[in-house]
Structures are given as structure tokens and as C-alpha cells.
């Protein structure tokens, strides 16, 4: 029996997902004994032509991390879709857009202006911006086109499975890769490596009185490590986020930020968290409620930190 062929690719990402796999350590040896890694640009030198030369559907499973923010991301997504039997959206960026998707609160022009013009230490007197094409005497140079709106992998190509997390937690990654190599898979479209219940289910903190009378930022207080974050006025995305990560952030005394994405019966993670959070505001009249609502800094960034591209609204108005 030939060994299954697996591939890894990174698109618009931070590299953390690659590190998550890399951190499997000696387990990687085990994996490479059981499967052939045929494409992994983060670690080994590959060219596009290597990928293009592969027959269609010759890769058994590709783990694709990163959001789709430029034309290269899209090109590789399409190519890998052709070449792979199974395409897995790996990590929060591919799943929901991740941190890169926060670019959807602004525009390409604004991003370029900040990066290449406005930041204090930028030295760019001619105000040059990257261009997709540049003619020089040696020929025409092209770089990928930068998109205005970040998309998830499944908004670009057909996706078979999702492994959420920023990054997906080590033990989950190990289990998931074994599962794919072994071939014992749930129905298409399933989310692997995560619980079907929210983080609250595995969070060890005590929950008592669900009422919020005041909201505080994480820098304004040192949370009591035993009590639920929400009850201390700290916004924790736990109730609206899939568990399975072992609640490591909570163990480090920080609130959940929602990187494992929405729960199975939920259409829009941010909207649900907004609803749950505001429902338990301890305020009866409009004035008090307005004050509490006003004290949530950056609702989009808070509720859609990792899932803006996947949300119903997807981006701010441009």
C-alpha cells in the first residue's frame, strides 16, 4: 500500500500554524514514516512548478493554513484544491479569516497608506506603494495583487474539513493528522480537533451569578483565577467559542478571545456573543444600558477577532 501523500501550505498567516505542526517534535518523524509530505513551502524549498506538475487529486490531504488576502493565496488555494482529494482549512485564518481578516475593517488603500506613508519611522519620500506590475529593463516583474477584502478558504474554494484554533492546540493537531492518515473521517464539512460544546464546558472557573454590572479591560485588573472572567467584568469569548483547546488561555489567567470559532448551531459567532453578553448586562433602564454598551471598546475587534471574514457582514463599509 503506497503511503498517503500529505501537503501543508501557508497563505496569509503568521506562521504560527506551521510552528504548531513543527512543535510536534519527534512525532513528525512518526508522521513522515506513515505519510509522504509532498509539499511544505514553509519548511522545504518547493517551486510552484513542482505543484503544477502533480496529477490532479494526487495529494490525499492538504492542510491549508492562512486566509486569502492576495492573488497568490488564491492561486495556491485553487491549485491545491485541484491537486488534493481532501482540502482542510487549518487554523483560525483559513477557518474564519483570523487576525488578517481584521483588515476587513479598513481598506487596501488605507493599509498601504499606513504601512508605506504614515508610520513615523517610514522613510519613503517619493511615497511609493507596491504595484502588482513593474517594468524594468530586465523585463516585467509581478507581485501578487493585494485584495481589499480578506476571505476564508471556503469562500474561495470547496473545503472538506476544518481544524480551528490560533493555532490549533498541539494534542489536537497530532490527533487530527493521525485521523487523516488513518482515513477514519466524519462527514464532509465537519470541524475536527475541537469540541462541539463551548469553552465554558471545559473551563474550570466557578460560575455563579451571571450578571455584568461593569466591564473592565484586561490591563485594568488582575483577574481572580478561580472566578469566571465574565463575572469579573472581563469580556471572555468562551461562551460563544468551541472548546477542545484545553482552556489554556484561561489557565494563564487571560480571557478567551474566540480563536476556535463558532459553535455548530451558530451562524455568526460575534452576533451570538454580543447577544449573550448584552443579555446579562445588569441594567434596567436605557441610560444605564447605554453606559455599559459604550464601555465595550471596539465591538468588532472583540466579537469578531478571529472570525470577521466568516461573519454575516464580513467587512466594514468601504
Amino acid at each position: 500500500m503506497p503511503k498517503p501523500k500529505i501537503a501543508f501550505n501557508w497563505a496569509s498567516s503568521c506562521g504560527g500554524c506551521e510552528i504548531a505542526i513543527f512543535e510536534l517534535g519527534t512525532k513528525l518523524v512518526d508522521i513522515s514514516n506513515k505519510a509522504d509530505i509532498v509539499f511544505w513551502p514553509a519548511i522545504f524549498d518547493y517551486k510552484y512548478s513542482d505543484l503544477e506538475a502533480m496529477p490532479d487529486k494526487s495529494i490525499d490531504v492538504t492542510f491549508f493554513n492562512g486566509a486569502i488576502q492576495n492573488s497568490e493565496n488564491e492561486h495556491l488555494a485553487r491549485l491545491l484544491r485541484e491537486k488534493s482529494k481532501l482540502l482542510v482549512a487549518f487554523g483560525a485564518c483559513a477557518h474564519g479569516g483570523g487576525i488578517p481578516a481584521l483588515a476587513n475593517t479598513t481598506s487596501r488603500d488605507q493599509i498601504f497608506a499606513s504601512s508605506y506613508k504614515e508610520t513615523p519611522t517610514t522613510d519613503n519620500p517619493e511615497k511609493l506603494f507596491p504595484q502588482p506590475k513593474f517594468n524594468m529593463k530586465e523585463g516585467e516583474l509581478t507581485i501578487p495583487e493585494f485584495y481589499n477584502t480578506v476571505k476564508t478558504l471556503d469562500q474561495t474554494v470547496d473545503v472538506d474539513y476544518y481544524v480551528p484554533g490560533c493555532p490549533p492546540v498541539g494534542e489536537q493537531v497530532s490527533k487530527v493528522i493521525d485521523q487523516f492518515i488513518g482515513g477514519d473521517l466524519p462527514p464532509k464539512g465537519s470541524v475536527l480537533g475541537a469540541s462541539d460544546k463551548s469553552l465554558c464546558h471545559e473551563c474550570k472557573r466557578t460560575k455563579t451569578d451571571r450578571k455584568i454590572s461593569k466591564l473592565v479591560r484586561t490591563y485594568q485588573t488582575i483577574p481572580d483565577p478561580q472566578k469566571c472572567m465574565l463575572e469579573q467584568g472581563i469580556i471572555c469569548m468562551g461562551p460563544a467559542t468551541r472548546g477542545g483547546c484545553g482552556s489554556i488561555c484561561l489557565d494563564a489567567n487571560m480571557p478567551c478571545r474566540g480563536c476556535y470559532g463558532p459553535l455548530p448551531n451558530v451562524v455568526d459567532q460575534g452576533a451570538k456573543m454580543l447577544s449573550a453578553l448584552s443579555s446579562i448586562f445588569d441594567a434596567e433602564n436605557e441610560e444605564e444600558i447605554q453606559k455599559l454598551a459604550d464601555s465595550v471598546p471596539d465591538p468588532i475587534g472583540t466579537f469578531y477577532r478571529f472570525s470577521l471574514a466568516r461573519s454575516l457582514m464580513r467587512r466594514t463599509k468601504q
Binding site: T105, G270, L274, S275, L277, S278, S279, F281, A283, E284, E286, I289, Q290, L292, A293, D294, V296, D298, P299, I300, F303, M313, T316, K317, Q318
Partner: peptide, 20 residues
Amino acid sequence: NVKAIRRFKLLQRMLNQFGV
């Protein structure tokens, strides 16, 4: 209706950010 106000006020802030 009080719960409706609570959700609406926060939603209004988020919609404002969205540019609605």
C-alpha cells in the same frame, strides 16, 4: 423588551463600526 434594549444598544455600536 429590556433585554431587547440591552442587545440593541450594543448592536448599534457595532453597526456604527461596520458603517451602517
